[in-house]
């Protein structure tokens, strides 16, 4: 008879080991896998509120002081703005997660990996190989479908890969909610690189419009990566079908593509005698709503899965085979 081992630490466990789906767990990792981590959700909520506050502060400071920067000072200000969303999240996350913090090296490593994959693969593929700016706006359908197939799938796969092929097989990934934590880190890494490229390629940005774009990108990339991270978290600790992970990446890509299209549509204004072009506020509102809704949904689903697991364990003893949503 084959030896039964814990699916996380691979330590031998008895035949009466706790299980979720078809996977066996030692006592320690069973408790970890089903652990509630309200700190993660508080950090996510604070991140959304903090970023909106950050936008308002920059708008207020620039509006009241009539601050004008140019040359290097504008470029440096843009780079600082591009780094703020990731720093805010790390600050909130580690402030909230003081009791059982994720290893900083692992979180920062996934963040850096997300950024490197964006720079080395994602941005060249989307902007140079597919050259999306040239053909996406030609028609509504090409914009929507192209945003999903090219922009959405490229970005979501790279963020998924940053988690799946680094931290996911290790002992540090030992809770369902870790998928969301590391997915968010990869998403913020990807967003930070997109924002840095935007700032550097433009030689600095208009602070008021730039901060809005930076925050919208960070919120969107973090929430979609958090969503595919949820699927990763469930895949590691439960016996999900083969379509589960492709389904998660596809769902994140679908939302990413739709968001990319909608953001372009709602922020573009018609030309009038007084000017026209872009109004970034609707984009910020959309991004905050999408991020809030995504995190709330993922929070609900993970809590539900944890409760179903624990209820099943209490009702039936060690062997459980329930499946939540």
């Amino acid at each position: 008879m084959e030896e039964v081992t814990c699916c996380v630490c691979h330590c031998p466990v008895g035949a009466d080991a706790k299980r979720i789906g078809g996977r066996c767990f030692c006592e320690y990792h069973y408790a970890k896998a089903t652990q509630e981590r309200p700190s993660v959700w508080r950090a996510g909520l604070l991140q959304i509120l903090g970023l909106i506050a950050f936008v308002l502060v920059v708008e207020l400071v620039v509006g009241l002081t009539d601050l004008t920067l140019d040359g290097w000072s504008l470029l440096i200000a843009g780079i600082v703005l591009a780094l703020v969303p990731a720093l805010l999240w790390l600050l909130f996350f580690y402030r909230q997660d003081r009791l059982e913090p994720e290893p900083k090296g692992a979180v920062v490593g996934v963040f850096v990996l997300g950024a490197l994959l964006a720079q080395a693969v994602g941005i060249p593929l989307v902007e140079q190989v597919f050259d999306v700016r040239r053909w996406l706006p030609i028609s509504t359908w090409s914009h929507i479908i192209g945003s999903i197939l090219v922009v959405g799938f490229t970005q979501e796969f790279l963020k998924y890969a940053a988690v799946r092929y680094s931290i996911y097989p290790t002992l540090e990934f030992d809770e369902r909610v870790d998928g969301v934590v590391y997915g968010t880190a990869a998403g913020l890494g990807y967003a930070t690189m997109l924002n840095l490229r935007y700032v550097v390629d433009s030689g600095g940005v208009n602070l008021q419009a730039g901060v809005m774009r930076i925050v919208v990108t960070a919120l969107a990339q973090a929430s979609f990566a958090g969503l595919s991270g949820y699927f990763l978290g469930r895949a590691k600790f439960e016996d999900e079908p083969v379509w589960w992970l492709p389904g998660g990446v596809s769902l994140a890509a679908l939302l990413n593509g739709l968001f990319t299209y909608l953001r372009g549509e709602i922020t573009t204004t018609g030309l009038t005698l007084s000017g026209g072009g872009v109004n970034p506020w609707p984009g910020l509102i959309l991004a905050a709503l999408v991020a809030g809704a995504t995190f709330a949904l993922v929070f609900y689903l993970i809590r539900r899965a944890n409760r179903l697991t624990l209820a099943g364990a209490n009702a039936k003893g060690p062997v459980t085979s329930e499946r939540g949503v």
Binding site: G146, F153, A235, V242, L245
Partner: peptide
């Protein structure tokens, strides 16, 4: 099943990018 799932993700992404390329060619 995990291995199949990994390959399935790669297959889905390659298929999506392939369709994206066809869409690009057809649009341009």
């Amino acid at each position: 099943r995990d291995r199949w799932a990994d390959w399935a993700v790669i297959l889905v992404v390659v298929a999506a990018l392939g369709l994206g390329f066809l869409l690009r060619e057809n649009t341009l």
